[in-house]
Design a protein around this nucleic acid. Structure first.
Lengths: 191, 191
DNA sequence: CGTCATTCTTAATCTACATTAAGTATTTCG
DNA sequence: CGAAATACTTAATGTAGATTAAGAATGACG
């Protein structure tokens, strides 16, 4: 059941069997149907989700109702509205399921208690957060300095497996163009 | 000497006098003259810098030689090329001083040794990294969904004190427009 | 298996912002 | 102080990508 989760943790730190057990005690399983929300704008985020199967997206919606996807969350990755989770204020992000998904849920207060009990967990999430910073920096540099075609190419080479199963319009949203323009780019063989 | 640094640490965690002493033992002071580089593209980042006084900028340069500022680093903030620091591969970022600055330097291996010795430090940098993720997420959403005027307004309300002492062209670079266009926006009283 | 929704395409028009190129302040510092 | 570098402005022109609107393809599901 929890092999994927434990494997991902073991990639960065090692836990004793006791620590593993205590950590898993705090984890619950949830299923999400395609299109179901895990979190909506205005909600206060109460915990973090590890995706075991399926695929989520995290996005914001602008005042014209257009979605801007800030992250896809395939199996092995974590999903949360970090700001709302930290501040316990209503958030601005949506998280929903692109396909039927199974997630492991850990509540904020349980995780914080575990941080104190198991210092290695704190290291694990420090490392994840740092990797996340690196990703967002690179993405920001891309949007500031690369034309749309090259942002698309970068996406393709970074996430080849996502590319296969994502509706094209979500890729457009992620790289920051309209679906119409992505369609045009692909046709014109600029890619 | 180290009041600012210790105060910033104390905002998130508490260290015993011994831990404080051990941490400060790993810290060295460096001065940077205006325009001096702390790090250049191709360098391998060997540590992290806490800005005590002055002001740094972290940026990448595109293939046309245009700077894209990904972060200003005023006193109380940390500067590093996180990717290069983690991977110990040549990095892509530049860090230099906008004005004469004084920084506290801690080497990667010393910090890693301290993480093990002082778990609270690991928490401190986890929290900083998480805050950083939140910032980059918000900035990314801004560049994907807001027009230039509103990105400028957001910058003004978020960093009013920076605005005063920054050359206008650096603000332009940060919000992702040309200096000419920012100049035009400001004149046209759109702001 | 057919219908309704969703996704993708095409093409015309439009616009926010870039580019280029001068010219004008403002700093810097010898 | 005076000269050179740096920063800022202005304005004409160019363009990447948005918008709109229609239709075609694909998929979901009763």
């Amino acid at each position: 059941m929890y092999e994927l989760l434990l494997k991902h943790i073991a990639m960065h730190i090692s836990l004793s069997p006791d620590e593993e057990r205590d950590f898993l005690k705090a984890v619950t399983v949830k299923k999400l149907r395609k299109k179901q929300f895990l979190l909506q704008e205005g909600d206060i985020s109460k915990g973090s989700a590890f995706v075991h199967s399926g695929l989520l997206k995290i996005y914001s919606m602008d005042r014209n109702g257009v979605e801007h996807i800030i992250q896809f969350v395939p199996p092995g990755w974590w999903a949360a509205d970090m700001k709302s989770l930290k501040t316990q204020q209503p958030g601005t992000l949506f998280i929903d399921a692109i396909e039927d998904s199974e997630i492991f849920w850990i509540r904020k207060e349980d995780l914080e208690q575990l941080y104190t009990q198991i210092p290695a967990l704190e290291r694990f999430f420090r490392i994840l957060a740092e990797n996340s910073v690196i990703n967002y920096q690179e993405r920001l540099i891309g949007t500031l300095s690369l034309p749309a075609v090259e942002r698309y190419q970068a996406f393709c080479s970074k996430y080849p497996s996502l590319l296969e199963k994502l509706p094209q319009k979500y890729v457009a949203s992620y790289i920051g163009v309209t679906p119409e323009f992505l369609s045009k780019m692909l046709k014109s063989k600029m890619v």
